[in-house]
Design a protein around this nucleic acid. Structure first.
Length: 474
RNA sequence: GGCCCUAUCGUCUAACGGUUAGGACAUCGCCUUUUCAAGGCGGUAAUCAGAGUUCGAUUCUCUGUAGGGUCACCA
C-alpha cells in the first residue's frame, strides 16, 4: 500500500462548527473513501486563549451526525496518536531544533508592542507588513521565553500546482519570518500543521481558499526541512445567502447542530454541501453518502464562491424525506411523532403531514398554527363559510344531508378513503358543481380554509365522528 | 495600498473553440384539485465590458471593471 491516499480534517476547538468547516471535512472524507484511503481527524488546539470548552465533543458530534467516520483521531486512536496538537509539543520542539541547528530559526528580540509599531507603520504607508525587514543581524540563543521565528531562507516567488485551481503563485511579499513557536511554548498553525501533515503521512491537503496566500510560507518551510510537498486541493469559499461575504461565524454562519435541531436530515446536509462547490458533471442532484463517495472527484470542484441557499437545502431535504418514507418508514414515523401530542400520534396522519413539510420542525409549525387540531377536536367555524360561491344555505344543507344518508350505508369497517371518496363523488357529480358538496363537507370536517382533502380527513376521523360533524353542519 | 483568487439565468451550476447556451432551486402560468400542499406540463430569465488570436469564441490572451481572500505570538 505505497500510495494510499491520506486526508485529514484539522479543526481548532474555538467554538461551534459551521457549514463551511463541515464541507471541508466532507470533501476530505469523500476523497479518502473514494480512494480506499485513510481519513484522519486532528484537533489543532494550539491557541489556548481562544479555545472554547466543549468544542471538541461538539466537533465529534457534528461529524457523527452526518456520518463522517474518521479512521484515526480522538476516541479511536491510531498509529500517529495523540491527535491533539497540545499533546504533541515535543514533536514540534524537535523540528524547531532542526531549524535552529540549520540557522533557519531564531528568537524574536522585539516585544509585541514593538512589532505592533512596525505593523502600524507599514499599514499607514499602505504597504504590506513584513517582519523580515526588521530581522536582527545576530541571532540570540533561544531560551523558550521569546517567540521562535522562521528565517525565510530565500526571498523568491513561488509557483505551485493546485489540484483544483491549477497553477497558483505568490510573490515575495507572501514570504516572511513567521512565528514557529509562540512565547507560551505552543506552536503556531503555520508550523504545527506542516509537521503533523508530514508525520501523519498526509497525501492531500484540502482547505479553504483563504489559505492560498499563506502557501508560499508553507512551501518555504517544507523546503527548509528538505521535505517534498503534499498535494494541495484548495476549496472555493462559501458565501452568505444574499450577500457576497464569505460565510463565517461573524456573518451569521450557523452552528451545524442548529440544522439538526430544525429537523434537517444528515444526508440532506451532506448532499447540499457536496453540491456547493462541486457537481458530478451530469444532471443528478440527489445522492446518498455512498453514491457521493463513488462519484466525487477533485477535478470537478469549482473555482468560484457559492452562495448558501436555504431554499435549495429545503428542497433537497424534502427529497430525502421522500426517500426515507420509502426506505425507512419507521424512522419517518418516529421523527414526525416526536413533535406530535399523544392524541395526534395517528399512523394515517403521516402521509398527510409528510407531503406538507420540508423539515421536521415544520410539523411544529403546523401544530402551532392549529392546522392539525381538527383531527382530535370538534372544529369551530362560522356557518357563512360553509357556503360555496353563491349557493343558498338550504341547498348546501340538503346536499350534506344527502351525503350523510349515503355515507351511513357504509359499514364501519369499510369506512376507508376509497369508499368515502366513491360515495361523496357520486353525490357531488349529481350537482351543478362538485364544490357545492365537497367544499362544505371539507369545511365542516376541518373548520379550515386550507386543509387536506375531505376523504382523507373523514377516514382518519372515522364514521361516527364524520357523521357527527356533518350533522352539526346541517 | 501590495499580493493572490474569481467572474454563465435572481441562486447552485453544465457546456474542457462550432449547442436553438442544458439542468436544478426560486419565480410566473396552465392542468389536476372544493381549498391548500403534493404532482404533471410549460414560460420568463445568463455568458461583466473592451480589445486581440481564430474561418469561428462562454471557452484561449491582454486590459479594464466588479466581487472575494490575505498581509496576527488566529487557525
Amino acid at each position: 500500500m505505497e500510495n494510499k491516499v491520506v486526508t485529514r480534517f484539522a479543526p481548532s476547538p474555538t467554538g461551534f462548527m459551521h457549514v463551511g468547516n463541515l464541507r471541508t471535512a466532507l470533501y476530505a472524507y469523500l476523497w479518502a473513501k473514494k480512494n480506499n484511503g485513510i481519513f484522519i481527524l486532528r484537533i489543532e488546539d494550539t491557541d489556548k486563549e481562544r479555545e472554547v470548552q466543549g468544542s471538541i465533543s461538539h466537533i465529534l458530534k457534528v461529524l457523527e451526525w452526518v456520518g463522517i467516520n474518521w479512521d484515526e483521531g480522538p476516541n479511536v486512536g491510531g498509529p500517529h496518536a495523540p491527535y491533539l496538537q497540545s499533546e504533541r509539543l515535543d514533536l514540534y520542539k524537535k523540528y524547531a531544533q532542526i531549524l535552529i541547528d540549520k540557522g533557519l530559526a531564531y528568537p524574536d528580540p522585539y516585544t509585541e508592542e514593538e512589532v505592533g509599531i512596525f505593523r502600524d507603520t507599514a499599514e499607514l504607508a499602505k504597504k504590506p507588513f513584513l517582519y523580515r525587514e526588521h530581522r536582527p543581524e545576530v541571532f540570540e540563543k533561544w531560551d523558550g521565553t521569546k517567540p521562535l521565528r522562521f528565517k525565510t531562507p530565500l526571498i523568491k516567488s513561488y509557483k505551485w500546482n493546485d489540484l483544483v485551481y491549477g497553477e497558483l503563485s505568490g510573490g515575495p511579499e507572501a514570504l516572511d519570518d513567521f512565528i514557529l513557536i509562540k512565547s507560551d511554548g505552543y506552536p503556531t498553525y503555520n508550523f504545527a500543521h506542516i509537521i503533523d501533515d508530514i508525520e501523519m503521512g498526509i497525501t492531500h491537503v484540502m482547505r479553504g481558499q483563504e489559505f492560498i496566500s499563506s502557501v508560499p510560507k508553507f512551501l518555504s518551510l517544507y523546503d527548509a526541512l528538505g521535505i517534498s510537498y503534499p498535494l494541495f486541493a484548495t476549496l472555493p469559499p462559501i458565501m452568505g445567502e444574499g450577500g457576497n461575504k464569505k460565510l463565517g461565524k461573524r456573518d451569521g454562519a450557523k452552528d451545524v447542530l442548529e440544522y439538526k435541531n430544525e429537523g434537517y436530515l444528515p444526508f440532506a446536509m451532506v448532499n447540499f454541501l457536496a453540491l456547493l462547490g462541486w457537481n458530478p458533471g451530469d444532471e443528478r442532484e440527489i445522492f446518498s453518502m455512498d453514491e457521493l463517495i463513488k462519484i466525487f472527484d477533485i477535478s470537478r470542484i469549482g473555482h468560484s464562491g457559492a452562495q448558501w441557499n436555504d431554499d435549495k437545502l429545503d428542497w433537497i431535504n424534502k427529497e430525502h424525506i421522500k426517500i426515507l418514507a420509502l426506505k425507512n418508514p419507521e424512522e419517518l414515523k418516529n421523527n414526525i411523532f416526536a413533535y406530535l401530542p399523544d392524541e395526534l400520534k395517528i399512523e394515517k396522519l403521516i402521509p398527510v403531514i409528510t407531503e406538507r413539510i420540508s423539515k421536521w420542525s415544520d410539523v411544529k409549525v403546523m401544530l402551532e398554527k392549529g392546522e392539525l387540531d381538527f383531527f382530535y377536536k370538534m372544529p369551530k367555524y362560522s356557518k357563512e363559510k360553509l357556503i360555496y360561491k353563491n349557493i343558498k344555505l338550504e341547498k348546501i344543507s340538503k346536499n350534506i344531508s344527502q351525503a350523510v344518508s349515503e355515507l351511513e350505508k357504509i359499514n364501519e369497517k369499510d369506512f376507508i378513503l376509497e369508499n368515502i371518496k366513491k360515495v361523496l363523488m357520486q353525490v357531488a357529480n349529481t350537482l351543478e358543481s362538485r364544490g357545492e358538496l365537497l367544499h362544505p363537507v371539507r369545511y365542516a370536517l376541518s373548520g379550515l380554509d386550507k386543509s387536506p382533502d375531505p376523504f382523507v380527513i373523514a377516514e382518519i376521523l372515522g364514521k361516527n365522528e364524520t357523521l357527527l360533524r356533518l350533522q352539526k353542519a346541517i
